[in-house]
Simulated scan of single mutants.
Amino acid sequence: MTRSAAEALLAGNRTTLAAYEAKHFGWSVDAGVATITLNRPERKNPLTFESYAELRDLFRQLAYATDVKVVVMHGAGDNFCSGGDVHDIIAPLIDLPMPELLLFTRMTGDLVKAMRHCPQPIIAAVDGVCAGAGAILAMASDMRLGTARSKLAFLFTRVGLAGCDMGACSILPRIIGQGRAAELLYTGRSASGEEGYAWGFYNRLCAPEALLDEASKLAADLAAGPTFAHGVTKKMLHQEWSMSIDEAIESEAQAQAICMTTRDFERAYRAFAAKSRPVFEGD
């Protein structure tokens, strides 16, 4: 394959998502920051079969997006997300046979996989109710900002299901610890914003009226950074869960050496030498 043919092939895999028209949630892109708005406020922003699938597909596309550097996810109104819609999802599931049920649970798990594997950092801005699958969306994000009135609840046991949904038994203990995760997953009780912050689920608490602005400001700061390197950081944070210390150190050595070949690394040095602030471009 010639170089021009290779470049054409790679160019065909790249995409821009600023003009993407979401059907089941709000979507916008501004200066490299994408905002996802779960926008069914009259029902506390529950998920449907369609929104699950569209979110999964969108996060998969983000792996190839050239115009999105950070993602902010929040809910319209005073709540983040109440989980799977009781009428649109739970009621139909009761009548489905096992093969179709497994298709559904694998599809919801694929959403979390897509969130963890897209290179962009994801910031969840969590106000009010954050329950069930909504709690999973927040958990699967890279950072979480909350409010004092945030109510975090993994409700699966309340509907006769196990707490091991969409990676919760793997990811949640790594965020808040095994005992605290076990309590939430066994009991299904709500954790307050103060509890979530004290346990490390939330990076910080904000006033409700300032929450989205704070999340957007954090996202803009990240978008102005070395975004290729941010993608490597996200990859290693995820990948090193299953590594020994020696394997992790070697993997990080290789990852850092790769980052040292980027133009952003050179820009940072030249800016330091000139006593100026580097302007990163993500390459």
Rank of each mutant, 00 (worst) to 15 (best):
S244P: 05
H230L: 15
Q239D: 14
M236I: 12
A210F: 11
G231C: 05
D221F: 03
K234L: 02
A220F: 01
L237K: 14
L211C: 03
S244D: 06
A220C: 09
W241I: 10
G231I: 00
L212V: 13
A220D: 06
L211E: 09
F228A: 14
A210K: 14
L211P: 05
G225W: 14
D221R: 11
A223K: 02
G225F: 14
A219T: 00
T227H: 04
M243G: 03
L211M: 04
L218P: 02
F228Y: 15
L212P: 05
H238L: 15
A210P: 03
A219N: 01
L222W: 02
A219M: 03
E214S: 09
G231Q: 03
D213I: 06
K234Q: 02
E214Q: 12
L218M: 15
L237D: 12
V232H: 06
V232L: 12
P226L: 08
A224G: 09
K217V: 06
M236C: 08
A224S: 14
K217L: 11
K217E: 13
Q239A: 14
H230K: 11
L212C: 07
T233E: 13
D221M: 10
M243D: 08
H230W: 15
F228M: 13
A223G: 02
D213S: 12
T233Y: 07
L222A: 02
A219W: 00
A215K: 00
G225P: 05
K217C: 07
A210R: 15
S242R: 12
S242C: 07
K235C: 11
W241C: 06
M243T: 03
Q239M: 10
D221C: 08
K235I: 06
P226D: 15
A215Q: 00
K234C: 04
A210Q: 15
S244Q: 02
K234V: 01
W241R: 10
E240I: 10
F228C: 08
A215L: 00
M243K: 07
M236P: 08
A210I: 06
S216T: 13
G231A: 02
D221G: 05
A229W: 14
F228K: 12
M243R: 04
D221W: 08
H238F: 15
S242P: 01
H238T: 14
L237P: 04
T233N: 11
E240V: 10
T227Y: 02
S244V: 04
